[in-house]
């Protein structure tokens, strides 16, 4: 009984490995490369002949001249593309509360004029550590700081944010967000 199963076990595993493990992904890659070349290769953003990032992957911004994205818990540096992941801090963990507090004080120091409560996405780490997006509220909160660091009228920066807000897919799926990298590239292109 056992012996009669050995041949189908090995042959079927081998055949399925060729079909599902090689032919199937190779075929999908071929069609993807022809039909959706930009998407299949990572929605890369090119400038001056080089890659400066992906529209889907967030980058770390720390200068007051740029909009900052979500806090990133990747190690050792934030937005490390080789180490995606979240903080995994539980809701009662003192380490979460101190990370949130230091994030709040960093935002307050960077722009003491703003009195509004800090939108939660600016103080909580994303799941991937590479979140390219931020809520509209999170972007609006930073308009004053970015405008004064660049010597631009707030209304100009605010209008740029408005132009970059993406609505919900089909009107109800997902959230209204701003792609932080694209917004910052648009800022740099203003002058």
């Amino acid at each position: 009984m056992l012996r009669s199963h050995l041949r189908p076990t090995l042959v079927l595993l081998g055949a399925m490995t060729l079909l599902l493990g090689i032919a199937y992904p190779a075929f999908v890659t071929l069609v993807a490369r022809i039909a959706f070349p930009a998407a299949a290769s990572g929605s890369l953003i090119h400038r001056d002949g080089g890659v400066i990032g992906s529209a889907l992957i967030g980058q770390s911004f720390a200068s007051p001249r740029y909009f900052w994205g979500r806090p990133s818990a990747t190690a050792p540096q934030p937005y490390n593309g080789l180490a995606s992941g979240g903080s995994n801090l539980g809701p009662l963990n003192p380490a979460l509360l101190s990370a949130v507090d230091s994030q709040v004080s960093r935002l307050r120091q960077a722009d003491p004029a703003v009195r509004d409560a800090v939108p939660v996405e600016l103080v909580t780490a994303s799941a991937s550590g590479l979140d390219p997006d931020l809520s509209e509220a999170g972007a609006r909160f930073q308009v004053g700081r970015v405008a004064s660091a660049r010597g631009l009228p707030s209304a100009t920066v605010d209008a740029l944010v408005t132009a970059h807000v993406r609505g919900r897919v089909l009107g109800f799926l997902g959230e209204r967000t701003v792609n932080v990298l694209e917004l910052n590239l648009a800022l740099d292109a203003l002058r």
């Binding site: 979240g86 949130v100 939660v120 909580t124 994303s126 799941a127 997006d133 809520s135 959230e175």
Partner: peptide, 28 residues
Amino acid sequence: LLAHRGIDQLASNGQPGGNMEGKESRFG
């Protein structure tokens, strides 16, 4: 625990709010 730390967790047109630790902005 974040409520008294000057943080806005309320859902509005500008944000989903809620417990966003470990979540992605596009999913809310």
